[in-house]
Design a protein around this nucleic acid. Structure first.
Length: 414
RNA sequence: CGGGGCGUAGCGCAGCCUGGCUAGCGCACCUGCCUUGGGAGCAGGGGGUCGGAGGUUCGAAUCCUCUCGCCCCGACCA
């Protein structure tokens, strides 16, 4: 992609309303813009990051046999009334009426809808297990949206729901998803912990949260260095580890995912049942598994940046490499840059070429701010001797190499 | 929802307390020249009516009332 033709509105100074580091950097580097409190527009770079995260999520979900579907954002009230949540949930649910005056709401989660689907389509134990997921918009009228894209009123969520005939099946599904989540966060380049959590209003017995340590986090987790015990501060009130009695240490963290054993709370309410081997009717046993892609992105920025800007993990960066054409008025420089750009593209390496007619300083500053992991600097002096510079954003380490060598190295990584 | 803070040009800010010239600065933007390895320089130029409404006053960005919006802390977080 060409910088000169792409909407990448970088800011020299941070807007006053931003406080969290990820918020400041994503605003300054031109990834997002705020429409209103808790509502964000993803610009080209931001949307690319989100899509790369979603791709990783899909690959891992598909790998354990989950099936992608898509459910509506607009829901009829009746289904929510059947589970009781229409009245249990307060102002956090956006409610509205359609033209026939029918009560509707905007989906803040999809247990009701997916269970409705299961109730219609699953008849027999032979139909189980099933596991369906979507990456869909959720709407919650948050009391206090905050920290940029960390806590918004409209956000993307990967939500997955498993259906089993019994607890043993649920246990197996739960385990599979737990493991897939570990792979997802690892692939996204995050530091994270899995902690025990309170199922709360979701109902059910067991729940775990996935937490990315960061000062911008709203949650506090407690950890035991000795035995590895970890929990959300909300459930663990003491200072000593309940497993080995060692002192616990506390850390701020961002919740980047959660998994719940829901049991039969929703399936009983919505009559999602099946016939077992004996022809006996039983409620389906459910689990649900959520991930917030935007929170993964924000956590990555919180965990990986320096004074100059973002340092993206290679797996979720908006591009693999940025070509910095230093002297737009020198044909050798221009030709070498363009040829590199063409070759990289043809080899499947995602490249952004900074072809703007601005001073070198601006390009260096913007490149560091945007945080693409690799930079190829094409300058007048080096190109005369047939060299370009391959620069690693994270360490700022620079290597003088032949263009072919730069291509080779990036192709290998890719 | 309780507490606090802030709304002046695209961004960052000054001016407000102690009302008074055509509302100012830096960056960004436009034109020209020049320049090209870490947010270059010179010259010229465009853009705001001070979040909104009402009030006080000869006169309001500035004082008063109401209102809208945004941020932070807390509560909440399915």
């Amino acid at each position: 992609m060409r910088f000169s033709k792409t909407l990448i509105p970088t800011l020299r100074e941070a807007p006053a309303e931003a406080e969290a580091i990820s918020h400041i950097l994503m605003l300054r580097a031109g990834y997002v813009r705020q429409l209103a409190s808790g509502l964000y527009i993803y610009l080209p770079l931001g949307w690319r990051v989100l899509n790369r995260i979603n791709k990783i999520i899909k690959e891992e979900m598909d790998s354990i046999g989950d099936q992608e579907i898509s459910m509506p954002v607009l829901h009829p009230a009746e289904i929510w009334q059947q589970t009781g949540r229409w009245s249990e949930i307060g102002e956090e649910m956006f409610r509205l009426r359609d033209r026939t005056n029918r009560d509707m709401c905007l989906g803040m989660t999809h247990e009701e809808i997916i269970t409705w689907l299961a109730s219609k389509e699953i008849r027999s134990y032979r139909d189980l297990p099933q596991s369906w997921y979507q990456i869909q918009t959720k709407l919650r009228d948050e009391a206090r949206p905050k920290s940029g894209i960390l806590r918004t009123r409209e956000f993307l969520m990967k939500d997955c729901y498993s259906f089993d005939k019994d607890e043993a099946g649920l246990e197996e599904n739960y385990k599979k998803h737990e493991e897939a989540y570990h792979r997802i966060y690892k692939r996204c380049g995050l530091n994270f912990y899995q902690v025990e959590s309170d199922p709360g209003m979701m109902g059910g017995s067991t729940a775990h949260e996935f937490m990315a340590p960061s000062l911008a986090g709203e949650d506090e987790i407690v950890l035991c260095d000795k035995c590895g015990y970890s929990a959300n501060r909300e459930v663990e009130k003491g200072d000593k580890c309940p497993k080995c009695n060692e002192p616990l240490k506390a850390e701020k963290a961002i919740e980047i995912g959660n998994i719940f054993k829901l049991g039969t709370k929703y399936t009983i309410a919505l009559k999602a049942v099946y016939l077992d081997e004996q022809g006996k009717e039983k409620p389906i046993v459910m689990g649900c598994y959520g991930i917030g892609p935007a929170r993964i992105a924000a956590s990555a920025v919180e965990q990986s940046h320096d004074r100059d800007g973002i340092i993206w993990p290679e797996s979720i960066a908006p591009f693999d490499v940025e070509i910095i054409t230093l002297n737009m008025n020198k044909t050798e420089v221009l030709n070498a840059s363009e040829s590199l750009y063409g070759v990289l593209k043809s080899r499947g390496v995602d490249a952004l070429i900074d072809d703007r007619d601005v001073s070198p300083g601006v390009k260096f500053k913007d490149a560091d701010l945007i945080g693409i992991p690799w930079q190829i600097v094409v300058g007048e002096k080096n190109i005369k001797d047939g060299f370009v510079e391959l620069k690693y954003r994270k360490t700022k380490e620079v290597e003088k190499v032949r263009p072919e060598e730069a291509v080779k190295r990036l192709t290998e990584r890719h």
